[in-house]
Amino acid sequence: MIPNDPLSVSIVSTGVANVASVLAAFRRLGAEPREISTPEAVRSAERLVLPGVGAFEAAMQELIRRGLVEPLRERIERDLPTLCICLGLQLLARSSEESPGVPGLGVIDAAVERLPARRLPQLGWNRVQPHEKSRFFVQRAVGETASNANSEVDKESYANATPIQPGYAYYANSFCLRREPSGWLASWSNYEGDFVAAIERGRVLACQFHPELSGEWGRQCLLNWLENSGC
C-alpha cells in the first residue's frame, strides 16, 4: 500500500509570536506545516492557518502592509480550508472594541467586544460547549494522526465518531464575540458571561481558544479540521 502524502498546512507568519506552537502541533499530527506571508501563498494554500496574538490594530496593519486582506477575504468567501486562531477569529469581524475605528476583514457581520469578566486577560482553561451540528468538535481515537486517518477503516470510524465532544480549551484573550454571526455556527464558553468559543462555516473554522495548546481535546479539533478540509 502506498502511504498517503503528509497533508500540507500553510501558517500565515506576520512576525508575531506563537507560530512555533502551531507548527509543533501540526507536526505532531503528521502534517507538514510551513510558514508563509505573501498574497500568492495565501491564495494558493491548500490549507491555511491564520494565527494571531497581540493587538487588533497592529495585526490589521500587518495584514494590510503585506497585501493579505483581499486574499484572506476571498479564501473565506470561497470556503477554502482555513483555520483562524484567537486574534485570527477577531480579525474576521467588522471592528473591535480593542481598536475603535479600525476596520477588520469584515467577513462576518459582528463586532468584537471586551469579555464581561472582572479579571482580564482570561488566561487558562475553560469549558467549550460545541454547537450540536459542529463538524469539528467530534471525538477521535487517541493517537490518531492525519495521515493514517485517511485510510478507509479510519474514515469509517470517523463516520461513527461520537457526534459532539465538549471539552476544555486554553484561552489567552481579553476580547471576544458575544453573538453568533449570521450564516455561521457558534460554539460557546462562559467567563462571567457567555462568549463565542468558535465559529464555523463549511471548511472554515475560527477558534477564540488555542487548539494548539489545548491538549488532547485541541489535538482532536485540529485533526478534524484537517480531515474536513479535504475536497
Partner: peptide
C-alpha cells in the same frame, strides 16, 4: 515544545 501541547 515538540512534545508539549499545553502552554509553556
Amino acid at each position: 515544545r515538540q512534545e508539549l501541547s499545553i502552554p509553556l
